[in-house]
């Protein structure tokens, strides 16, 4: 049967494509691991936390301290998420409960526009507007604060959109029950809607966090790129992503292996965050429905 042979062929070709698509991430992780191996084997790991500085290119006295960069990544991510979370959730509450749906739809469009804004455009704008403004307060301007502000703007729509989706998924009957008991709008939001939407909002924040850790362009353009543990928010920093972006063009040997190790760390941290998220989401589904 010719038809059956075609059927067989289609099934196997599609299966092959699916395995390629699903296995790609393994290839990438394996590749990063292979690349990072020299850095993990040659006794360098001890120096990641022992060396005070990051000077991997230096011929005479290379220094391999990763701590400043990990700290930079951590600080800029947490700072940006801390800025974006209250703004995003408060905005979502406002548009879900205080504003007619017609207006709310326009806000949704704007949030989508902000979410689709290329990172390089945001970074460029930050360089033209935010950095000069900060440098007037406290030079040099390219700093933890500048990167965190623009990064917050970038992840804000993620939080706002997921929060509003979670709030709109709260069953109307819950809200009607509250209204029937004479509970005001604020009480209803605080006691009924927000607790019911907690899971969805939390996922949105974690998603935003994951996005912020991996973000490169905004950070590389605005953070000043000096590998140090910052003393204040006006100090420049150098997170892992911008280190990779700046150095992969010329890095060789053990320096290059270190960049792979940095990439591997990023993938593992974000993978754990997102993986934990999907793990958490499943039991939630069972209890809600």
């Amino acid at each position: 049967m010719c038809r059956l042979r075609v059927d067989w062929l289609v099934r196997h070709v599609l299966g092959l494509l699916a395995v390629v698509a699903g296995g790609l991430v393994l290839v990438i992780v394996w590749y990063l691991f292979q690349g990072a191996k020299p850095a993990l084997e040659s006794g360098l790991p001890r120096r990641f936390f022992g060396d005070p500085e990051w000077q991997p290119g230096s011929v005479r006295d290379p220094q391999y301290g990763l701590v400043p960069m990990l700290a930079g990544s951590f600080l800029v991510t947490v700072f940006a998420t801390a800025l974006a979370t209250p703004l995003g959730i408060a905005g979502a509450v406002f548009y879900q409960f205080y504003v007619p749906a017609r207006v709310s739809r326009w806000n949704l469009r704007c949030m989508e526009l902000l979410a689709g804004m290329p990172a390089v455009v945001l970074g460029f704008w930050g360089l033209m507007v935010v950095v000069p403004a900060i440098s007037r307060l406290e030079p040099p301007g390219q700093s933890l604060l500048a990167a965190a502000l623009v990064l917050a703007l970038m992840i804000l729509p993620i939080i706002a959109l997921t929060s509003q989706a979670a709030l709109s998924a709260v069953p109307l009957s819950h809200l009607q029950a509250a209204a029937g008991l004479g509970i005001g709008r604020a009480g209803m939001i605080w006691n009924i809607a927000l607790p019911a939407a907690k899971g969805g909002i939390g996922s949105g924040v974690l998603l935003a966090l994951a996005r912020a850790i991996g973000e490169t362009l905004v950070v590389v353009m605005l953070c000043g790129n000096i590998a140090q543990i910052p003393g204040s928010v006006f100090d420049p920093i150098r997170p892992v992503t911008s280190t990779i972006a700046l150095e992969m063009g010329y890095a060789t040997a053990s320096h290059k292996a270190l960049l792979y190790a940095g990439g591997l760390i990023l993938v593992l941290v974000i993978g754990l965050l997102v993986g934990g998220l999907s793990f958490r989401r499943k039991p939630n589904h069972n209890t809600v429905h």
């Binding site: 698509a21 790609l24 991430v25 990438i28 590749y31 990063l32 994951a210 850790i213 991996g214 973000e215 490169t216 992503t241 990779i244 972006a245 992969m248 960049l259 792979y260 990439g263 990023l266 993938v267 974000i270 993978g271 965050l273 997102v274 993986g275």
Partner: peptide
């Protein structure tokens, strides 16, 4: 998982 890999890592790869 592929969706969670940051773009700079794709660049490196």
């Amino acid at each position: 998982l592929l969706a969670s890999v940051p773009s700079i890592v794709f660049g490196l790869f």
